[in-house]
Every structure is written in C-alpha cells, then in structure tokens.
Design a binder for these strands. Sequence first.
DNA 1: GACCTGCTGCGGTTTG
Length: 819
Amino acid sequence: MTPLARLQQWFAARGWKPLPFQRQAWRHYLAGESGLIHTPTGSGKTLAAFGGPLLEALADSGERASKDKGRKRTARPLRVVWITPLRALAADTTRALGDVAADLGLSWAVAQRTGDASARDKRLARGGKLDVLVTTPESLSLLLSYPDSAPMFAALRCVVVDEWHELMGSKRGIQTQLALARLRRLSPGMRTWGLSATLGNLDEACRALLPPGTPPPVLSAARPRPMTLETLLPADVVRFPWSGHLGLSQLAGVLERLFAVRTTLLFTNTRAHAELWHQALASVWPEDAGTLALHHGSLGPAVRQQAEAGLRDASLRCVVATSSLDLGVDFPSVDQVIQIGSPKGVARLLQRAGRARHRPGETGHVLCVPTHALELAEYAATRTSIAEGVVETRRPPRLPLDVLAQHCVTVALGGGFDDAALLAEVRTTDAFAALDDTTWKRVLDFIVRGGDALEHYPEYRRVVRDDDGMYRVHDRVAALRHRLSIGTIASDGNIAVKFLRGGGLGAVEEAFLSRLRPGDRFRFAGRLLELVRLQDMTAYVRLVKQGDGVVPRWMGGRMPLSSRLAAQVRTTLASDRTSPEMRALQPLLAVQARVSHVPAPDVLLVEVVRRRDGQHVFVFPFAGRRAHEGLAALLAWRLGQRQPNTFSLSANDLGFMLSPQLPLSLDVGQLRGLLTPENLVEDLTHGANLGELARRQFRGIARVAGLLPPSLPGRTPRSLRQLQASSGLLFDVLSRHDPDHLLLGLARREALEEDLQVAWIQTLLVGLMDHEIVLARPESLTPLAFPLWADGMRAQLSTEAWQVRVKRAAEQLERRHGR
DNA sequence: GACCTGCTGCGGTTTG
C-alpha cells in the first residue's frame, strides 16, 4: 500500500476524509517546500502539518524495510521538531502526535521537552533517541545551549511552529526566528511549516517565519465558521452608566443566560474584574458552589488545573476567566462564551468566541455584556469588522539586540561559533536581515568584554574568543547563569500566596501585598483570605469564612482598543443606525448631537468645557488608548512651551482630556498648530519624559541580555525593588560612562516605538492635517467626554470623594438632559 | 442609582 493510501485509510477508519487544504499541505511538503497554514477555526491543522512528515516517514520505512530485512534497527535521527508557545499544548500535542504515528505503524518515540516534562522525556531529548520532539521556544534554545545537540538535529526534516500568530509579535518570536536559523544551518534540508490563526498580515507572518526565497504557499482551511455577535442590551440605555468598566448591573441578565445552557466561559478583561465577577456570581449562585470556578494568570497551577479539569469533564457550569483561557487545550463541553466589557480587538473576540463548542454546521456565537453605554458602539463596530474580514496585524520587533546577545551566548555555549558564519546565519532571519557590521561587532564586544563601562566586572565577560577564533563559554558559573536566564519573558516582583499548611494559591503583586498588614483581609482566587505573615516573598494566609476584603489590582498590560477597531467605532457612530446596539444608543447620540457633535470620519471633534472644577479640553481622534496618552503628553508639552501651565491628563480608547490649571483660549487655527507632525519625536521625548520610559524598558532588556543575575532555583526570589535597584544602577552607570551603549539605544527605541507609538502618532497627525476640526463648546460634559472626566477625577481624588463627585455630576446631567 | 481599566507566556539541576 502506498503511504498516501495508508494515511487515507487512517482517516477513513475515523469516518473522515482528508480536507483539501490538508492534501495541499502534504503535496507541498513532499515537494520539499516550506509554508504557512492559516486556519480560522483551528480544526484539522495538526494533521495538515504532521501529515507530510508521516507520509515521508512511511515511504522511508518501506524502503528501509526491504533493504534492512532481518537486520537490527540502527539509531534513528530526530525528524520533526514541533514548537508551541504553551506547555499545556505541548503535553496534548505529544499525546496526539504519538497516537497517530503509532496507529500508522511507525514505532516512533514522541516526547516533549519543556520545563515540566518528565525526566524520561528530558533524557530522551538530550540523548538523541527521539523521532518527534515537542517543545517551547525557550526549551529549544536550552537544547541549543548544549554542545551535544548539534548532531541530534543533523537530519531534521521539518519544524512546525504552532500558534505562530501568538509568537510572531513578541521577542519570543524573535527567539524562535534565531533558533530556526540555527536549525536550518544544522540541517540544510529542513522545511518550516507555520500554523496561524486569522491575522491581518499573513505575508509578514511568512517572512518572519520561513527561510528567504520564493513566495511560500499559504494554505487556508476551508471557509471561516460563521460567527454571530449578540449584545445583552441594557433595559434602558438612557439610564445605563456612561462610564465604568465592571458591569455588575448586568448580573441578573448574565445569570439568566448562564443557566440557559450547561457550560459557559465568561471572559473579563482584567484579573481584578474576574475576581469581582466571580465573587458577585458566587453570592447569588443557586446551585452547588463547586460548579463555579475562576481562572487567571496569577492563580497557581493547581487552582487553574482544577478549573480546566472541570471544563474537560463538564462538571463546571461556569468559569470566569481572563486571557489565560484564550488559548490552549480545547474544551469541547463549553456551550457558550460571554464577553464582559470591551472586546478591545477583533482578533481577541474571534479567539474567545472560538472557545465555544464546535458543532458541524453550527455558527459560532458570543454574547457581549456592556459595562458602559459607548461599548455598544464597540460591539457594533466589532461585528462590522468581522463581517468585512478586518483583523488586527501583529508586527514583529525589529533588531532586538538583547535577544541577539542572548542567542549568541547560547550558541557559544552550545559548541561555539565562528564570527562570520554566525553573522551570516543571523542575517537570514527577518528580524536581523538589516544588521550592520558595526552593530554586530558591538554585540560581540558586549558578550565578550561587557562593553566599555562594564569591562571591569568579570561576571559580564561571559564569552571567550579562543585561539582558533571560535567564541565559546568556558566558565561553569557563567554557563549555569545563562541557562537559568534563557527566555524573553520577564515577570518579577510577585509574592507567592500560600496557606499556612502548604497549598499555594498563586501570586500577587508585591506593591499590593506590601501595603497590607497581618490580619488584613483580601480577596484572591475566589476566596476571602487573611494575611498571617509576609516572609521571604511569600504571603502566608488563612481562609476566612465571612466578611469583606479588597481585591488586588495587578499591574500588567494596558489592553488598549486596537487602532483598527477604534477607527471602525467612529465610522459606526457616524453611520450605523440599524444594528441593535446602535439603535439602543440613539437616545444618547441624540444628546451628543444636541449639545456638541457626533464624530465622523475625516472630522476631528474637540470639546472645550468650563466647569466649576476648571476648564477641560476633550479631543477625540479615535486612535486607541496608547496613542492618546502620547498625544495628550505631546499637546500638554507644546501648550506649556507657549505659556507656562500645568495640566492633568486622562486618556481612553476614543480620546483624551487636558485639564489646564490656567484656562486656555483655543481656536481651530491654534489647534492645527498644536497637532502638527513637525518635531514630533523631539516634542514627545520631552513631553512624555522619554528618559523615564526608557529606564523602565531597560529592566526587561537588561534581563534578556543577561545583565541581571537570575534568581537561583530554590532560593528566595529577588523582590521587585531589588531588581529595579540593580537595573536602575546599571542604567545610570551606562548612561554616564557609555551613553552610546547599544542596550541604552534599544531601550530608547522601544520606549518610543512601543510605549509612545511614535510611528502611529506620526501617521495620525499627518492624517489629521486634512481633517476638518470641529470645535464645540458645550455647556456640560457630553456623553463622549464624561468617561474621560470621571477618569481624570479618579486620578486626583480619594475613592469616596470620587464617588460623590461622579454621582453629583451624573445627577446634574440627568436634570439638564431632562431624564 | 449610577465605582471599582493594568492580559498572557517560559525557564536549571545531572556524576548516584
């Protein structure tokens, strides 16, 4: 039987037929090509990517069987490396790939090599007795840091990178690019196949992943599954909050929908919100409390695994989760997905909606629960974007030299490298294609000597150039420290939360816990806890039955609305009159139109309001929160240059607010002058305090580049304060003695590009040049301005004073608008 | 009567 017939037989035994994109993928694979498989639904992608290697192996084993008849099998080389971003996926994939191979009669050893892999698997991987290796980018780098790994990869046929859309936009993706270049060098015949969800820039995804050359095949799995987006409309939008994010006023409606089906995944945008929603649901939960669970990234593995197991065996009715459940193992028993608050992006909502059960022929569905009125427009805009196939892009970082430095030490450790050869290899990656000779020399100088400012510290002399010209690591301590700090994810300063008798619940930010005193209560992991003592970066707690407690606020990503979605919101506000959300929002938009203007494309709305608490200037570029923060700082700086003044700022996804201490008199002409793209970088550098932003960026960079000592296993982890101190010290030393240091330059560049989004602001300002500016002077806060004003007040006032102010303002508005 | 904007991800030990 031919290999293809064998594989088809395997499909037939399950009542399946190979899908067209799977057959295409196999054909390209057998022709020796690399490519990308793009599957909106995720179904069938594993077999699309794994079928090629299977067919090839089946053909080989047929040949070998006839040649080697009766002879003992010789050692087999590793054939496939499968990279996944999640350990949980590695375990699942290992099982799945092993099963298929075994079914087809291939006596393959399939094992995983991740941090939590079994000792047997690790031995197999290091010992070179494997056919298929499932791993993470970090573990792959670790393997490359061992000198005995090179022969192991010498006959590699294929690398599959799963969930490439997740990796490509981050430094983990860059680490992957560099590792792939290494593998291609060790095994020149190797193919690369990527698996990706829907993405706005598939071409870029290919460039970043695949070897340079002819345009690769990009295969799509069938047509996307139709998806419907439903909004839980508030009973009366006019009385619905104009501001706020938690949305507990919708609790009753949500509860009703929860019990209309068996199992629900309820997504919130922040960990604190997940805790609060879990608490609220638990207080009205009509059945056994054990059927409600919580899942977020600060919870310990045991707590999370319990929730995941409950989803797998369908014993849970509802899990309240954050992005920690966006990806990962599929839970076929989930019937319904609910999204609380803003979806923030098309891709994220699609991803979350896709977590609900896939039944053949059934459309996907997500129920959106607004937390304030304007989110209705976000939902309508998201639906339009989905219908038009507009999905966000992910941009790979350019020339991240910290990752390169780390990779060079890895390669030096894994048998050493020749300067010119490694440079050529590194330049085959998309990220470092433009790396110039000078910078390369400085990277080498950095890992060999520590650079000008650090050359007197022996711990920064990690790599040695030997007499034969090869760069190697000789020092055992340096080797250990390097392996301990491989990877690009920095997460420090968390305090473990543990019960007195063992059991760990997870980790909470140092800044939060260090404010509590023994005896204080807080809510975490869905429980009310009392702090007993704080010791060695661990908080020992005991369970409290009743009472009240604060919920930690974590510091994490900012989750701004994607710029694409923000722009769509403006279009929606201006022109969508038919969606249920926008019909519901009409009364509010009528207020907005009456007292000011409703924003429209090609129009920049500016509102100047005078209140008893001072003057407020609201600007609505609809560009996403990050850009608005930068723009607010820019305008404040430019205004301050004209006349000394002090401003308080606030920004959200739709616009920003400037509240000057001395009132301004603004006209359209002045606004134009303030919004000029000229001198942008310079003004932003001063206005947003780039130095401080760069200093903050530097901590992560220093860690990736190997300048910060890793905390040793089994020892008390270093506190955030210690880390900040050592990275701050380094930053100062370098700034003083080596101001041109390549990592300082990188920190400034990242602060400009990522924190401040200069490129995007530049595009925006150029675009605004031919927008009409509408300057309105409403007598009171408009529906658009209200959330910004409330935010700004919160920053200034205590919680209670803030509540009183917001309430009073809301009441005034209500009277004024005749509600 | 209207309040709770800060996500996710990984990683070492080796000489019994």
